[in-house]
Simulated assay, not measured.
Amino acid sequence: MTRGTVYGGGTPPVRLHPRHVRDRQFSAVGFGRRGLDPREVRRFLHRVALELAALNQEVARLGEENARVKRALREWHSAQTQRREP
């Protein structure tokens, strides 16, 4: 993700996808300096990417289920309206 304001003008933020997490690169730390273990960072990013993928699949599944339920409700409502008309 890029740095900048979350709220306000400019382009809207890009939705985070698993590939953004997997492909994220961190600056290397020079010898003798404090920093993060690159393997640990990569393991964590991979875990986050897997969770994002699972959440995105669940959101898609729920969207499809929502559409199915709305369709069924419209059909039921139409059938009830037709039954009541003389």
Results as ranks from 00 to 15, higher is better:
residue 50 L to C: 08
residue 33 R to Q: 14
residue 28 A to K: 09
residue 52 L to A: 03
residue 67 A to N: 08
residue 36 L to P: 01
residue 35 G to F: 01
residue 53 A to W: 00
residue 31 F to R: 08
residue 12 P to T: 10
residue 22 R to H: 02
residue 82 Q to V: 13
residue 47 R to G: 12
residue 74 R to G: 02
residue 75 E to V: 10
residue 6 V to G: 00
residue 55 L to E: 15
residue 26 F to W: 13
residue 39 R to Q: 14
residue 44 F to I: 11
residue 15 R to P: 04
residue 16 L to F: 03
residue 58 E to K: 12
residue 85 E to W: 03
residue 43 R to M: 13
residue 71 R to W: 03
residue 46 H to A: 15
residue 82 Q to R: 15
residue 36 L to C: 07
residue 40 E to F: 03
residue 69 V to N: 04
residue 41 V to D: 03
residue 71 R to T: 09
residue 34 R to M: 04
residue 36 L to H: 15
residue 60 A to S: 14
residue 63 G to N: 14
residue 33 R to C: 05
residue 35 G to N: 05
residue 20 H to E: 07
residue 24 R to V: 02
residue 20 H to A: 01
residue 19 R to C: 00
residue 45 L to R: 08
residue 79 A to G: 09
residue 7 Y to F: 08
residue 39 R to W: 01
residue 8 G to E: 06
residue 16 L to C: 10
residue 9 G to F: 02
residue 77 H to E: 15
residue 61 R to Y: 05
residue 58 E to C: 04
residue 8 G to F: 03
residue 44 F to W: 12
residue 42 R to L: 11
residue 35 G to H: 00
residue 49 A to I: 06
residue 34 R to I: 06
residue 14 V to Q: 13
residue 62 L to K: 13
residue 76 W to S: 11
residue 3 R to H: 08
residue 59 V to H: 07
residue 59 V to F: 09
residue 11 T to A: 15
residue 61 R to F: 06
residue 14 V to I: 09
residue 22 R to M: 06
residue 27 S to C: 01
residue 78 S to L: 12
residue 57 Q to W: 01
residue 8 G to W: 01
residue 5 T to P: 00
residue 74 R to V: 13
residue 48 V to E: 11
residue 39 R to Y: 04
residue 9 G to L: 07
residue 27 S to Q: 10
residue 56 N to L: 06
residue 67 A to Y: 00
residue 23 D to C: 03
residue 24 R to M: 13
residue 40 E to T: 15
residue 11 T to P: 06
residue 20 H to I: 04
residue 9 G to V: 04
residue 24 R to I: 00
residue 78 S to H: 10
residue 3 R to W: 05
residue 73 L to E: 15
residue 22 R to Y: 03
residue 63 G to A: 11
residue 47 R to T: 15
residue 16 L to K: 02
residue 29 V to Q: 08
residue 40 E to Y: 05
residue 43 R to S: 15
residue 52 L to P: 00
residue 56 N to F: 01
residue 75 E to T: 13
residue 15 R to I: 04
residue 30 G to Q: 09
residue 7 Y to H: 06
residue 46 H to G: 14
residue 60 A to Y: 01
residue 6 V to T: 03
residue 24 R to Y: 09
residue 38 P to I: 07
residue 72 A to M: 14
residue 17 H to Y: 04
residue 30 G to N: 05
residue 5 T to S: 10
residue 11 T to W: 02
residue 56 N to A: 11
residue 80 Q to S: 07
residue 51 E to F: 03
residue 31 F to L: 07
residue 26 F to N: 08
residue 81 T to Y: 05
residue 56 N to W: 02
residue 23 D to S: 10
residue 7 Y to V: 08
residue 3 R to Q: 08
residue 20 H to C: 03
residue 18 P to W: 00
residue 22 R to L: 13
residue 77 H to S: 10
residue 83 R to L: 15
residue 63 G to Q: 14
residue 61 R to Q: 11
residue 23 D to N: 14
residue 48 V to C: 12
residue 58 E to N: 11
residue 38 P to K: 06
residue 41 V to T: 15
residue 1 M to N: 04
residue 73 L to N: 14
residue 36 L to T: 09
residue 42 R to H: 11
residue 81 T to F: 04
residue 34 R to Q: 10
residue 81 T to M: 09
residue 49 A to F: 01
residue 51 E to R: 11
residue 22 R to A: 00
residue 73 L to S: 05
residue 86 P to H: 09
residue 60 A to G: 07
residue 59 V to T: 10
residue 74 R to Q: 09
residue 17 H to A: 12
